[in-house]
Design a protein around this nucleic acid. Sequence first.
DNA 1: TTGGCTGCAAATCCTTTGCAGAGGT
DNA 2: ACCTCTGCAAAGGATTTGCAGCCAA
Lengths: 161, 161
Amino acid sequence: MNATGMPDLDELKRLLRDHVQRNGLKSSSRRELVLEVFTRMGRHVTADELLRAARDSDARIGAATIYRTLRVLQDSGLVVERHFEGGASQFELVDGDHHDHLICIECKVIVEFDDDVVEQAQERLAARFGFELHSHRHELYGLCPACQKKRAAKAKRRTAD
Amino acid sequence: MNATGMPDLDELKRLLRDHVQRNGLKSSSRRELVLEVFTRMGRHVTADELLRAARDSDARIGAATIYRTLRVLQDSGLVVERHFEGGASQFELVDGDHHDHLICIECKVIVEFDDDVVEQAQERLAARFGFELHSHRHELYGLCPACQKKRAAKAKRRTAD
DNA sequence: TTGGCTGCAAATCCTTTGCAGAGGT
DNA sequence: ACCTCTGCAAAGGATTTGCAGCCAA
């Protein structure tokens, strides 16, 4: 992750090439394009958003390529897929440390966070049930500060009537 | 929730009738059938599982009715929908206290758990970002004890060759 | 040259909707 | 009677797959 807060593109391309080579796959400019577009967009994107953005650079790229590329990127560990409530999957670049999500149910803004207490509790819980933990999802849904204010203002207006 | 560990059917039917009446809807035997089937099956079921089971009692019931009924049940607060990773939504009867999930990535068995430490951490995190918390998802994915053994046995067999 | 990659279109899977008739109040 | 509920079939959205040609190694 560089100073821009986004993972470094060249680094990502290198990791992708490594994975591709190690698994008897082949390099391709489309796959690197998807990676480029990914770094330009916000951290959470849907397959369709990637497709539209990728078409700005390569009008002939198809949805199938996006999905197939996303699978390769997931296999290589560069990307994770997330199903938030409702709608399509979101894909997210991985940058070493993972994070959980706090999502506004009104404006859909996503805040990432990380918490050691929860982390440890997860290990403890898995151990209690004899599970070998592989991954987890932890998402909190609520109203962000801005949307709370908006609601409060709206309620006030109603009262004033 | 009664001694069987399943919510009480009569109680559920009563709650459903209340909701239906309060909202100008109408009672129907199909909706109560879905509720019955729900209590007979494990806690987590897909729409398709409900459909097949319901057809044992009423061969003519259709998928649309299941989905429409599930929406009514959700509106009434009796059921919640969950999108675990991959595949179809699962629906779950609500019985007052909520719980989180530990899911085996191999055999898909689901263990429910409840943890105060995590619960408190969630409140704390939401507060830190000024969010007003409404709900959350917390799912741990891993290998259950049985599937760990199966994998170990398989690995051993390979080694023996 | 080989075998992976791609676009395109068709196919799937899950879920929702339109419509005409059945059923509850 | 009125308005909701239902089955059926068709529509929908997201994702996957089959296939024939393209491209990298």
